[in-house]
Computed example of a mutant assay.
Amino acid sequence: MRLILDQIVKTFDAKQVLQSVEYSFEQGKIYGLLGRNGAGKTTLFNCLSREIATDGGKTWLEQDGVKRELTETDVGYVYSMPILPEFLTGYEFVQFFLAANPSMKRQDAKIDEWFDRMRMSREDRHRLIKGYSHGMKNKLQMLLFLIAKPPVILLDEPLTSFDVIVALEMKNMLREMKSEHILIFSTHILQLATDLCDELVVLNNGQLTSVPSELMHSPEFEREVIELLKDDPTHA
């Protein structure tokens, strides 16, 4: 399975944030998306998830040799600031999610198993989401994607709100998930990117550029990334 970006363009006022972006992401890999503040990482994610419309280009999903246009149901988006109904408990929210997606009702009996897998205690799963920490809210988002299994999962700074133990659990979960998904996460932490990712992609000057895999664990890695980022005129 591949996610294919074909000449994606997005402009805000007079600024072209995404300039005919082309790239191909493959199932079975974790991709790290690097870029300076304002480079357009969130814009790219919003275009892929159909939160906002592009001004040009197409996004394709290729499965078993058949290529079709990407739809919003193909994409799971873990937001940096989770958007969840805080008047529900975590358990009630998952029940609501299953009820809103009839094809998943058969999994209703597994709700506690999903929470167990996310290492969320029985007390926490029956508390109001309003009382959840930022990290717990992100775990709840991830739980939904474990259930729904969208082909593409986008993660916007997903691990920065977790403590060391939970971050390690989430890293291991992402490694397990990558065989069935295309995983792309944005981060500004180079150590996290090199530790977790199979490939790194830099967004700069409205374009995506791959960091050579052989450099990821070499002394030249940071220098190479800085070279790719430093010529962005918006940060001159």
Rank of each mutant, 00 (worst) to 15 (best):
R223E: 15
G40S: 01
E220K: 13
V201M: 13
M136K: 08
E69R: 13
L228T: 11
Y23R: 14
F93V: 02
L208N: 10
R223I: 14
T71R: 12
K67A: 04
D163S: 02
E169S: 07
D6I: 04
T42F: 11
Y132I: 09
A99S: 12
P85R: 00
T59V: 14
G65H: 01
G206S: 11
K29T: 06
L183W: 00
D231M: 13
S49W: 08
R119H: 13
L190G: 01
K67M: 11
I111R: 05
T59S: 15
M142Y: 00
L208W: 12
D198C: 01
A148D: 13
L146D: 11
V211Y: 13
A236D: 11
K230W: 07
D198V: 03
E22L: 05
H126S: 05
W60C: 02
V66P: 07
Q27R: 15
Y31V: 06
G76K: 10
E92W: 02
K110W: 02
R50N: 09
S121T: 14
K15P: 00
S210N: 13
L200I: 07
S20G: 15
E22A: 08
R122H: 07
L159V: 09
T89S: 12
L174K: 04
E62F: 06
M118V: 11
E69N: 13
L128P: 09
K15E: 14
T209C: 09
M173C: 09
L196F: 00
Y79D: 08
L70K: 02
G65K: 02
L215H: 10
V17Y: 10
S80V: 10
L44K: 02
M173N: 11
L5A: 01
Q95D: 12
G76W: 07
A39G: 06
K149Q: 12
D112T: 14
L84Y: 01
I4M: 03
A167V: 03
N46D: 14
E222A: 13
E92L: 05
V75I: 14
V9M: 05
L88H: 01
F96I: 00
T89L: 06
L140E: 00
R36V: 10
G135W: 03
H134Y: 08
I111L: 09
S49E: 06
F12P: 02
D108N: 09
N204M: 03
P233A: 07
K137D: 00
D74I: 10
F25Y: 15
E199C: 07
T42C: 05
N205P: 00
P219I: 01
I83H: 05
M173Q: 13
S24V: 15
I129K: 08
A148L: 12
L34K: 11
F25M: 06
P82E: 04
G38N: 07
G76S: 13
P233S: 11
T54Q: 08
S218D: 09
T42E: 00
S213H: 05
Y23D: 10
P102A: 01
L140Q: 00
D124E: 10
G35H: 04
L18M: 04
K105L: 09
V152G: 04
L33H: 03
I182R: 06
P151T: 12
K41N: 05
G56D: 05
L70V: 08
M173W: 12
L143G: 01
S179L: 09
I189G: 00
E69D: 03
L5N: 02
V164P: 00
L208D: 03
R2I: 11
D116H: 07
Y79S: 09
Q19N: 15
V17G: 09
